[in-house]
Design a protein around this nucleic acid. Structure first.
Lengths: 249, 249
DNA sequence: AAGTGGTCTAGACCACGAA
DNA sequence: TCGTGGTCTAGACCACTTA
């Protein structure tokens, strides 16, 4: 019986992934030491080499282990490397820091977007999109102005359902079954305008971190977000892994 | 003869990767259409399914194609998605935009780093590190102040060898055989100080984009870079892919 | 030379989507 | 039902590291 017999339909490589990760976290596989070699992992978990390797490669991609050809697979200090190497939302990041996040002045309107936004959403410059705007407060003080431009055909009836939403991305994922799988951030800075300054309770000219995020799902852009953040109170964090395939000649 | 016969020792999946990517770029595999199914790719390139799949998965990870179970593998618009989803150096990014990049006032000194840097390099606050500093010019105008803090034991004799270096990362990779495999950027903004303003030829208080990058190799931090960039002239770009493994229950 | 991870094959069965 | 991608196996040989 080569495949899963009855217990579940979870792929075996995910089982192995979980089990190895678990043993790392409990210290059974010690930080700094090497994982058992692949042939032994095959025996331990009773799977083929391919399956072992897929699990270990996932762990490597997430920074739990470091694979060295000819030597072995070293267990890394997961507490140091375990940052968020994934797409995160602004609100989620703030909450992780222990801040209380609230959105005010939530507005949903249909509008013709600025040209730069239309271009990135790949819609005509005369077609309407949904514009969701709000002011975000962290622990009682305004910290950012957020505007999201969404493709209207993907989110029917969003105007009525958005009321109590606390994080736009998880809202979209759960309510509309879109799966966000890539995002590009363009980050710059400039001084606050008079209007921005008054909304954020800061001085005119004070540096704002301006983030333009293009979100992709299924290979096409579905949303552009523009965040104008009080730079004094926020630091943007990004993790990157790997370089392109190396050619050795 | 199952393996490479003589032509080279490039893995077959990389060959397939290159060939498919090439056909996408020339339009032979059209944007929006589907790639030939895996069994046909096996025949086309005369490799096994595993090899085909490894190549296609790489293309998917880089955003060239989108794999849908049961349907096929769709070719995405690579011109829209092909940004740098990898670790890049500041200089490389500028050069890609067609700007001429020059470093001036290059200095290499041993010094005790600021506490925040020492902490991220995981060295004691009293131990010395290498500090490489320079002023970067893009097309004749100063655009950024860069300081790199390196672990000295990894780069012996760097003071003498660094003279004509144009990009620090490729210099380190080729000269010291370190392989950079992860980096974390912390991005914020603030107004330029008097000294910064004079070095960058901008007004005091003008917004600077401040990037602190921690570079990892082999699972441990090896370098911290601090970039202070004229925000008027630069936009930082970051790509993110994937969320953590989804469990469907 | 021995042991580690890296590549590759041929073939099997499963899960999802569309007809 | 059929064709697509998803998982998995058993076994082979290669490349790198260390002794």
């Amino acid at each position: 019986m080569p495949s899963t017999s009855f217990e579940s339909r979870i792929p075996r490589y995910l089982r192995v992934y979980d089990l190895v990760k678990g043993r790392i976290e409990t210290g059974e596989f010690e930080v700094g030491h090497y994982l058992p070699p692949e042939p032994e992992l095959e025996r331990i978990f009773n799977v083929s080499r391919t399956t072992v390797r897929k699990a270990v490669e996932m762990l490597a991609k997430e920074g739990f282990v470091y694979i060295k050809q000819g030597k072995g697979t070293q267990v890394l200090d997961f507490r140091a490397t375990q940052h968020l190497q994934y797409i995160t939302s602004f609100s989620e990041t703030l909450r992780e820091k222990g801040l209380t996040v609230k959105h005010t002045q939530l507005r949903v309107v249909r509008a013709v977007p600025p040209e730069s936004i239309a271009e990135q959403l790949k819609v005509g410059t005369d077609s309407e999109v949904l514009r969701v705007s709000r002011v975000t407060y962290a622990s009682g003080k305004p910290i950012a102005l957020i505007a999201n431009y969404l493709l209207p055909e993907l989110f029917p009836g969003i105007e009525k359902r958005i009321a109590g939403m606390s994080s736009l991305y998880s809202f979209l994922e759960s309510e509309y079954d879109v799966r966000i799988d890539a995002a590009t951030d363009y980050i710059t800075a400039r001084g606050a305008s008079e209007e921005e300054a008054s909304q954020l309770h800061i001085a005119v000219g004070q540096p704002l971190l301006v983030v333009r995020r293009v979100t992709h799902s299924g290979g096409r852009p579905i949303e552009v977000a523009v965040l104008r953040i009080d730079a004094d109170r926020y630091e943007y964090c990004v993790n990157t892994k790997e370089r392109p395939p190396r050619r050795k000649l």
